[in-house]
Design a protein around this nucleic acid. Structure first.
Lengths: 118, 118
DNA sequence: TTCAACAACTTATTATTAGTAAGTTTATAA
DNA sequence: TTATAAACTTACTAATAATAAGTTGTTGAA
C-alpha cells in the first residue's frame, strides 16, 4: 500500500496518508478490523458479528488485509475448510486509530448538542 | 450520519463507528479534511493542494462535509463566486484521528522492517 | 452410508460510485 | 470588450460494490 515517506520537502499531502485512510475506510474494512481486535476469529464468526456483510465482500476484504500484512490466515486441523483470521502486530496497532474514531464520535455528539442549544 | 449510540446492549458493531470510519474514508475525504486542518481555504486553493482530485468530486465531498456539519461554506465579499471552506469544531476535532493514522503509518514501517529482518 | 447442512469460497450479473470531459455563470483584469 | 479565472453543473464512461446463485470439501445425524 505505502512507500517510504518522502513528504518532508513538498507542500502536498502525503500519499501514504491518502492511501491509508482510504484503505481502512473501504466498505466494511473498519468493522472487519474492529471485530478482529479482541482475538482471532473464524470466517463464519466474522460473518455473524457483522450484520449485513456479504460473503463475497468479506472474502475480498480479508484477502486485501492479508496482502497488506495486517491479518494472517491460517488453516486449522490440517483441513482446507477451517480457517482462522488473526491480526498481525501492524493490524493490532490500528486499535489506536479505532479508539480515536470512537472518541471523536462521542466528542462530536457533545459539540453538536452544544451548538444546537446556543 | 450518526444516531445516538445504543450499542451498550448488543454484541454487534456500533453503526456509528461503521458509518464514521467509512465516511472519513470515502475517496478524497481524508485529504480534504487534512488540507483544511491549518485553517480556511478557498475552493481553488484546495484543488491546488490535492493533486489529482477532480472538481466534480471535490464539490461533492465538500457538500457532504457541509451537510454533516464538519465544514462551513461562506461567501466572501458579498460575491457569489468567492467561497471559503472552513472546519467546524467537530471537523477540527478529527485532527486526533488524522494524527493516529499518521502515527500508525510510522509504527507500521518499524514493525514491517523488524519482521523482515528477523 | 448417504443425505443434508455447513464452511469458505467463486462466478455472473446488476447497481452504485468515481472519474473524465465539456459546458455554464458571474467576476475581475488587461 | 475581451479574455481569463472561480466555482460549479451536466453528461457520459469506468471502476467498485451488492446480490444472488453455484462450487467444493467437511461434518453430523438417520
Amino acid at each position: 500500500m505505502n512507500q517510504p515517506c518522502k513528504c518532508k520537502n513538498t507542500s502536498h499531502i502525503c500519499n501514504n496518508f491518502h492511501n491509508t485512510i482510504e484503505f481502512i475506510g473501504r466498505r466494511w474494512m473498519g468493522v472487519i478490523l474492529y471485530t478482529l481486535m479482541p482475538g482471532p476469529k473464524r470466517y463464519h464468526e466474522i460473518v455473524a458479528s457483522i450484520p449485513g456483510i456479504s460473503d463475497r465482500l468479506l472474502t475480498e476484504r480479508l484477502n486485501e488485509l492479508v496482502k497488506e500484512g495486517l491479518v494472517t490466515k491460517s488453516f486449522l486441523e490440517s483441513s482446507t475448510k477451517k480457517v482462522e483470521y488473526e491480526l498481525t502486530p501492524s493490524g493490532l496497532a490500528l486499535k489506536e486509530v479505532m479508539l480515536a474514531v470512537r472518541n471523536w464520535i462521542e466528542l462530536r455528539e457533545v459539540l453538536q448538542n452544544k451548538i444546537e442549544s446556543d
